[in-house]
Design a protein around this nucleic acid. Sequence first.
DNA 1: TCTAACTATGACGTTAACGTTATACTTATG
DNA 2: CATAAGTATAACGTTAACGTCATAGTTAGA
Lengths: 165, 165
Amino acid sequence: MAARTVTGADHDVSQPAPSEGGIRISDAASTAGVSARTLRYYEELGLLRPSLYTSGGERRYTEEDLIQLNRILELREVLGMNLDEIKEFLSFETRLDELRTTYRATKGSTTKKARAEQKETLREALELNETLAEQLNAKLARMDSFRAKLAGDARRCRDLLAELD
Amino acid sequence: MAARTVTGADHDVSQPAPSEGGIRISDAASTAGVSARTLRYYEELGLLRPSLYTSGGERRYTEEDLIQLNRILELREVLGMNLDEIKEFLSFETRLDELRTTYRATKGSTTKKARAEQKETLREALELNETLAEQLNAKLARMDSFRAKLAGDARRCRDLLAELD
DNA sequence: TCTAACTATGACGTTAACGTTATACTTATG
DNA sequence: CATAAGTATAACGTTAACGTCATAGTTAGA
């Protein structure tokens, strides 16, 4: 009476194996270098939903999910964004993708109102993009000057070491 | 019976003005864009001690202190270091400065043992420096690739906008 | 089919980096 | 010298980003 597999088709035997349906949470987590708790937390915040769930309610991640997870971790570690900022950024990316999709689908055959809305979204996107780019460039500049400082320090250390011989 | 000024010399009137002795904590804080609490907290952690205290026990900061504070904030904001890492880094810098000072003072007239110790410290410094430089470069590379992605996004946005006219 | 190993869902705990508040003292200025 | 405005210390509060634990259900392999 209980469902046995993910797809739940009882008379279909064409599935490769009983074990099927994506990456378990602990495997996904260890692959990405985080904890299972982190993945559940990200899901709770609406940052990352696994593409699949088993009939029993367990999360199953796909490779695509892992790619998205890496994007999130990159935004966190490299850009120092907090999870709210990441969410906002990701939702904007999603919105842009949607926009592109519908644009390609409808080609030029849209109403004036729809096109005005598309323009508005595009302008918003460009604005966010520019803001991020500015912040990024500022940070890059400061990091680069810090790198120069480090290089100078290293040089002086080596000079001193050379003098001690 | 209570002391009145910083120096506490009662019969000495040669001091420039009653108002004297450095930057008050709230001024230092607002100049740096942080709160007074943050400065007290940093002092508590051993990150930044004001150069002066009034006889009444109030903190007075110098311009040098503010420069040091900005270094700390830079390490925090740009490199994403936590306060413990910053402390370690700063203490290492201090140690290097001391080393350079004593080295310049004693010139070449030191014992073999002292020179060996100096060498050891220099090597430690170089190691820390290299570690930081590596991390920094890795981060810079990832940030740069992210910047490229942003630029690409912006380009596509502009292309779409152009098509809409 | 049995079972060891994994998972879900709360719910409470933890840590860093401060914020806030209360109380008492200090400083600058009219 | 009075007094408003700033400060010190102590102590408790807050938030983000998870960690940990208990309890109960699920899955995969022998």
